[in-house]
């Protein structure tokens, strides 16, 4: 079975409007022959919508003589192929041969026919149209709900991913074997600087939270970890307007090799020397054992 695609819906609309190109008709026929509930529903609704397009022309009536002509021609043509197949689908229609009501003179109806007030002839059309419209509105709402549901599912998936991410980093802070480093300002650092680093030896992840990290103009704070006595850069620290920052670091290093975290104040963009700070070290904290 060919998979339902959105462009089939376009073909259904053109089909209902009697505007489908021959090549597209073959494509659609083939698709429908394989069974597609969504397209079948769409065709029904577009077909009902097409009735609305037709009804936009309404207003003119033929001359009364037309009815006599049509009835006479139908009589001459006989009963056709039974004439009953579609009558069952007409709201309120009586089968041929039902007991006639008393005739009323002066309406131009054929003898023996019960004239009907015009509103009674229109109400079933209006009711049929109303049903069609109702199901159409339901169909459109169902589509909208479907789209909304798909969007919600996407949001839920994104939230789940974020929650999973949060959970991952939260686990670092709760890890039983976690090592902590409280970073204090050095004599060259602002006395308000505060930071706490938590390192999970099992996963080698670290979370470092900074406070009062107000960035001087044209300078950047850079975080280092001391590994086997040698500094290794963990990247620049981007604080918000309130001087807060949280760094989440993967693969910080092997627990045995790590001894401390440090922060240096570097030229914009970080230390020109990737292997060591070039600016003053403004914070330092030994890692607990």
């Amino acid at each position: 079975m060919s998979e339902h695609r959105q462009e089939y819906i376009d073909l259904c609309a053109a089909w209902a409007l009697g505007s489908l190109d021959a090549a597209d008709r073959r494509t659609l026929d083939q698709h429908l022959a394989e069974g597609c509930a969504e397209c079948a529903a769409a065709m029904e609704e577009f077909s009902a919508a097409t009735v609305m397009v037709a009804a936009s022309a309404a207003g003119a009536l033929p001359r009364p003589a037309l009815k006599d002509r049509v009835l006479a021609a139908a009589q001459a043509a006989g009963t056709g192929d039974g004439s009953g197949a579609w009558l069952k689908a007409v709201p309120g229609a009586r089968p041929a041969g039902a007991a006639p009501a008393p005739p009323r003179a002066g309406r131009g109806d054929a003898p023996g026919l019960r004239p009907r007030p015009a509103w009674t002839t229109w109400l079933p059309v209006a009711a049929a149209a109303a049903l069609a419209v109702t199901s159409g509105v339901l169909w459109i709402r169902a589509r909208q709900l479907g789209e909304s549901l798909a969007s919600s599912r996407k949001q839920v998936a994104q939230l789940e991913q974020r929650m999973s991410e949060e959970e991952k980093w939260s686990a670092v802070l709760r890890a039983t074997g976690a090592r902590v480093s409280l970073l204090e300002p050095t004599t060259e650092g602002d006395a308000r600087l505060r930071a706490r680093a938590t390192y999970d030896p099992a996963t080698r992840r670290a979370v470092v939270v900074f406070e009062n990290l107000y960035k001087p103009n044209d300078r950047d704070y850079q975080l280092w970890v001391i590994k086997d006595g040698v500094p290794a850069s963990l990247g620049l620290i981007r604080a918000d307007e309130d001087g807060r920052a949280t760094l989440r670091l993967e693969n910080v290093g092997d627990s045995i090799a790590l001894s401390a975290f440090a922060v240096s104040l570097e030229p914009k963009g970080g230390s020109p020397n990737p292997a060591a700070p070039t600016g003053p070290v403004v914070m330092l904290g030994k890692l607990s054992t």
Binding site: L61, K67, L71, V90, L113, T121, P124
Partner: peptide, 12 residues
């Protein structure tokens, strides 16, 4: 024929 008359009125 009677039903055709009614349907003519209704749908024409």
């Amino acid at each position: 024929m009677r039903s055709l008359s009614e349907l003519f009125d209704r749908y024409t």
